[in-house]
Amino acid sequence: MPIPEEVTGEEIDPDVRQELMSLPKGLAEDVARNLVMVAQLIDEDPEQAYGYSRVALRLASRVAAVREAAGFAAYATQKYSEALAEFRAARRMSGGVELWPVMADCERGLGRPERALAMAGEPEVQKLDKAGQVEMRLVAAGARRDMGQLDAAIVTLQSPELASSAVHPWTARLRYAYADALLAADRESEARDWFAKALEADKDGATDASDRLAEMDGVEFVDAFDDSEEESDDVADDLSSDVSDDVVEVDEDDDEDDSDDSVGDKS
């Protein structure tokens, strides 16, 4: 697959670069450049990112970082069975537990929420850092909702991290999930408060909390650009009509002047 010349492969994480040092230099560079493309495209064009991940996988399937990237690309395109297989392979190679929450979410994607809940109770969860534990809580709450256990999902999200006023990278998503669960339980007033709290913590636009708040408040957004275009078209039509009328009047005056000149010449 085509890769822009400006993508050198040096853009990847130093830890990943270290893993690729086990490969011959030219091969390592090719793999690195494909991994960069995966990272650049996974949000805006996941299908393209998936294609680059498959190239990297063919080149270096025994590198844990490559299997992890392939897993995330498959996950982004909702190929959950494939993603889970890649995450399991990466975990076997690296020995880490960081992928545990996303592996559990793959189980949800495959229609097996009970397995995701079982994973939420495994010892691996205690080995996760705080961000990983919050992610696991979000997955477990989602699994509860998948099973129709809405009240249990709300309770699952209630935690010291949710109650904390401190803002972390995961705070907005946690508050948003709680607000969404409350709304699903018809607890609208509480839901609105938590959507507002999610928006307050969402500095990077990770959620659509602002849209949800507007929807709850009955606010409708009008595309001002489209309206201005229509108004401009109307003005242009009016101006065109006025100009046409003026031209007709001028032409009639010119004809009268020409007629008078002709009479004068004949006399």
Rank of each mutant, 00 (worst) to 15 (best):
V66N: 15
R67Y: 04
R67I: 08
A69Y: 07
A70I: 02
A70D: 05
G71A: 05
F72W: 10
F72H: 10
Y75E: 05
A76T: 02
T77I: 02
Q78S: 11
Q78D: 13
Q78Y: 12
K79A: 00
Y80A: 09
S81L: 10
E82D: 12
E82M: 13
E82W: 11
A83E: 00
A85Y: 15
E86W: 04
F87V: 03
R88F: 11
A89N: 12
A89V: 12
R91C: 08
R92E: 15
R92N: 14
M93C: 11
M93E: 13
G95I: 03
G95K: 04
G95L: 03
V97T: 13
V97P: 05
E98K: 15
L99S: 06
L99K: 04
V102N: 06
V102C: 07
V102I: 12
M103C: 01
M103I: 06
D105C: 08
C106N: 02
R108W: 04
G109N: 11
R112W: 11
A116H: 09
L117W: 05
L117C: 04
A118S: 08
M119N: 10
A120Y: 10
G121W: 02
G121Y: 03
G121V: 06
E122D: 15
K127T: 07
D129G: 09
A131Q: 15
G132E: 03
G132C: 01
G132Q: 01
M136N: 04
